[in-house]
Simulated scan of single mutants.
Amino acid sequence: MNPDRDLQISNELALGLNDIMEYLARQAELKKVRDAAETFADRLPWLTTPEREAVVEVYTADRQDVSHEVLLRIADRTVELRGEYEARYQALRARLISAWMIVIAVSVMLTSFVVP
């Protein structure tokens, strides 16, 4: 067995599963949007069949556009938050390292006074 090859296969499987999950999530969202469009069109009983189908299509397209825009905003905000958290982590890490360095320096100084 080749560990590098196994890792590559594992990564490919993970990417494939991610693609499948993304596709299923999109299809579920599309169904939800389409159902909402159908419910909306049902409240307009005076529409002819072609008009009703047009309303459903336009409503569905609009809701998909809104969903896409929201997802893009969430993705952008995720990138922003990641940058903020990484900066905070680095600052905290630097403070912690500084504190440990001070503790070590004080310990060395105190031991040099105690040990002749």
Rank of each mutant, 00 (worst) to 15 (best):
S10K: 12
N11D: 04
N11L: 05
E12T: 12
E12F: 05
E12K: 09
L13H: 09
L13S: 09
L13Q: 07
G16F: 04
G16C: 06
G16T: 05
G16S: 10
G16L: 03
L17F: 11
L17W: 14
L17A: 03
N18V: 07
D19V: 03
D19C: 04
I20Y: 03
E22Q: 14
Y23A: 03
Y23D: 02
Y23P: 00
L24D: 10
L24Y: 08
A25G: 10
Q27P: 03
A28N: 03
L30M: 11
L30I: 04
K31D: 10
K31N: 11
K31H: 14
D35E: 05
D35F: 05
D35T: 13
A36D: 10
A36E: 12
A36T: 02
A36W: 03
A36H: 10
E38N: 02
E38L: 05
T39Y: 09
F40I: 11
A41F: 02
D42I: 01
R43V: 03
R43I: 06
R43Y: 00
R43P: 00
R43F: 01
L44W: 08
L44D: 15
P45I: 01
W46R: 13
L47Y: 02
T48L: 07
T49G: 05
T49R: 14
P50S: 15
P50Q: 13
P50A: 10
E51P: 01
E51S: 05
V55Y: 00
V55N: 00
V55Q: 01
V56L: 03
V56T: 00
E57C: 03
E57P: 06
V58Y: 15
V58I: 14
V58E: 10
Y59G: 06
Y59W: 11
T60P: 00
A61V: 12
A61Y: 12
D62I: 12
D62V: 07
Q64M: 02
D65T: 06
D65N: 14
V66Q: 15
V66C: 07
S67T: 05
H68D: 03
E69C: 14
E69A: 12
E69F: 06
E69Y: 12
L71T: 09
L71V: 09
L71D: 14
L72Q: 14
R73F: 14
A75Q: 15
A75W: 07
D76C: 11
R77A: 10
T78C: 11
T78F: 07
E80P: 06
R82M: 11
R82F: 05
E84M: 15
Y85E: 05
Y85N: 02
Y85A: 02
Y85H: 09
E86W: 02
E86L: 13
E86Y: 09
A87I: 03
A87P: 06
R88T: 00
